[in-house]
Design a protein around this nucleic acid. Sequence first.
DNA 1: ACGAAAAACGCAACCGAGTAACAAAAGATT
DNA 2: AATCTTTTGTTACTCGGTTGCGTTTTTCGT
Lengths: 213, 213
Amino acid sequence: MNEETGLRERKKQRTRETLSRTAIELFLERGFDQVSVAEVAAAAEVSKPTLFRYFPAKEDLVLHGIADHQGEAARVVRGRAPGERALAALRAHFHERLDAHDPITGLCDIPAVVAYRELLYGTPSLRARLTLYSLEDERELAAALGEAAPEGVDGLVARLAAAQIVTVHQALARVNWERLAEGASAVATLGAAHADADAAYELLGSGLGVRGL
Amino acid sequence: MNEETGLRERKKQRTRETLSRTAIELFLERGFDQVSVAEVAAAAEVSKPTLFRYFPAKEDLVLHGIADHQGEAARVVRGRAPGERALAALRAHFHERLDAHDPITGLCDIPAVVAYRELLYGTPSLRARLTLYSLEDERELAAALGEAAPEGVDGLVARLAAAQIVTVHQALARVNWERLAEGASAVATLGAAHADADAAYELLGSGLGVRGL
DNA sequence: ACGAAAAACGCAACCGAGTAACAAAAGATT
DNA sequence: AATCTTTTGTTACTCGGTTGCGTTTTTCGT
């Protein structure tokens, strides 16, 4: 069904990647706001309108890689083993991603990745746009939690739960990245990261009440 | 200490308010993106640079009113009765705001307010900027939860809890607004809104586990 | 009450993000 | 090869936001 063998398609994909890569390089060197899209276009050897035909906004040059993880949480919930709890599946998946040092967990000390996250967190317009992506993520997760829901999970609960889960993932990633930004190595932090994830999921499962809040 | 009786200050505050009000009126009429800042400035009878001396970005013309609620959650936690749980204080406060039909709860059917929220939710750039505000809110709340913390509440738990609480508030406000957007009246929705708030806080306190997630 | 420092303003010009129009080039199709 | 379609470059434009500078207005010292 899907023989993507057009010469045209290949070229398009290459230009797309070149644009994104070139842009991120420049942004890492001198900062997101200190590089104009005209510069990026010139460095990638395309015209400015062409750049915007590939990416709807300057921010998307950076976020394009992130978009791949879109809907991951929802997929994990939908693809969980029969009888397995949604929270358990998500928890196991997060631990897996930690062991794999997936950048999405914040626990990846490859210098380029650390610098990349620094760029993300340090540029308000990037954070803002990133938020819009995760809102979509949240909606998908809520839908996944709503399907095949156990008794007592109505639409409201599904939405609340989705919101909490997505939020907690972001918080965990941020905590991990903060440790790495202070110079710690990923392997040295792995244990603490697992512990944090456990604490977070324990909290999600058992509520804030057990902590005296 | 604070005798704000300068003629200058009064004038400044008036122009500030005029700008914001004029802008929102125009945005409600024709949409955020269909009105240029030059138009707003002209309608408010100031020059474009002056407009930007009062508001750092076009979005802030709309969000300026919201900023007043900044740090409210943190204040509630800090000002709670001795011995009262943070979650209980927040819960009670939210119920209060519901009864007062505070726009922040989403439960306010004054047409102008409904239209305002429609503007907010319907304009991506506004939502994005609004998110940056609530991040600040979240940080303050985390700090408040961290102080005078019960045993077992370390920095991580405080941050996670703050994130969850802020997120849940947003979700509740959105649900309320959705009901109103479908034509329901605020008083008719009040009961359901209270029930939702109870469910949400119950969920926060007891965790997702009790719901079989 | 008067004059000077300071603050706020308007004007004009400018920069960068993003878009529209049209013409040129390159890939696909027969 | 000839033609049709898709993609690209060029130019020019709109709009958000900023800068520099001269002018007005408020405040304050005397």
